[in-house]
């Protein structure tokens, strides 16, 4: 009885030790990948930041107004630092994936494959989102200033429509890129856009005929007033 108990204990212990012996190098590999990922990501971040600063990306982004738009979107740092950070996290996440894959766990094997396959789409979608937010804010601001200078009372409404139009378009592109409910997104976007146009047509054609006429008359009269009454030369 004692022998049997001892054998069973020993077998279980040896089995456990074997598993640990197999798993420990994998765990070590995980930590190595994480450490290597941090080092490489940091080096890449630094190199990229230096390179972008050398080609005066920060100065150019300031000159083109990208920096100001980024600041309005919540990114206060220079563009080179933002790109450097993005590169850092991408490389780091990639190495973490490789580390987890090295563990060779049945539960994560398929997941890692999927995640790695998903990675390029994720990067593209992130870039799309960044460009969309920048473009939406930029165009919204440009529209607002132009409308105010033209003394159009609905300036804010029009500017918000432009801004959110670009945002919606961006979101639909991002979701399509990620492959999330592709058909639903395309259909929803088409329905919303078509619906808005139809609603506006019906509203102006039926309900707001008089308002539209008044607005156009007012606008025309204002332009005429300006021509006839303002003889001011500003320069």
């Amino acid at each position: 009885m004692n022998d049997l108990w001892g054998d069973a204990m020993m077998a279980a212990f040896q089995d456990m030790m074997k598993r640990v012996a197999v798993f420990l190098p994998k765990l070590l590999a995980l930590f190595s990948f994480i450490l290597l990922g941090i080092i490489l990501a940091w080096v890449l971040k630094l190199a990229l930041q230096r390179l972008l600063q050398a080609v005066r990306v920060d100065v150019l982004s300031e000159r083109w107004g990208v920096q100001a738009t980024l600041a309005k979107s919540g990114f206060k740092q220079p563009l080179s630092q933002i790109v450097g950070r993005l590169a850092f996290w991408m490389v780091f996440v990639l190495f973490v994936f490789m580390g987890v894959d090295a563990l060779d766990l049945p539960a994560t094997a398929a997941l890692m494959g999927h995640l790695l396959g998903f990675f390029p789409s994720l990067v593209t979608a992130s870039l799309l989102l960044l460009v969309g937010v920048l473009l939406g804010n930029f165009l919204g601001e440009a529209t607002l200033i132009a409308m105010v200078n033209a003394q159009i009372h609905e300036a804010r409404l029009i500017a918000n429509c432009v801004r959110w139009g670009v945002f919606l378009f961006t979101i639909s592109m991002v979701l399509t890129q990620l492959g999330i409910a592709k058909e639903v997104v395309v259909s929803a976007f088409s329905i919303i856009l078509g619906g808005v146009v139809l609603a506006l047509s019906i509203a102006i054609g039926l309900g707001g005929r008089n308002i539209a006429r008044d607005a156009l008359e007012r606008r025309w009269r204002k332009a005429k007033d300006k021509e006839e009454r303002d003889e001011m030369a500003h320069l």
Binding site: Q151, H153, D230, E231
Partner: peptide, 18 residues
């Protein structure tokens, strides 16, 4: 001919929207 009211309105709209 100078339309001062129009100029003030232009400023006020800036004050409201900008």
């Amino acid at each position: 001919a100078i339309n001062v009211e129009r100029m003030v309105n232009g400023f006020r709209q800036g004050l409201r929207d900008l």
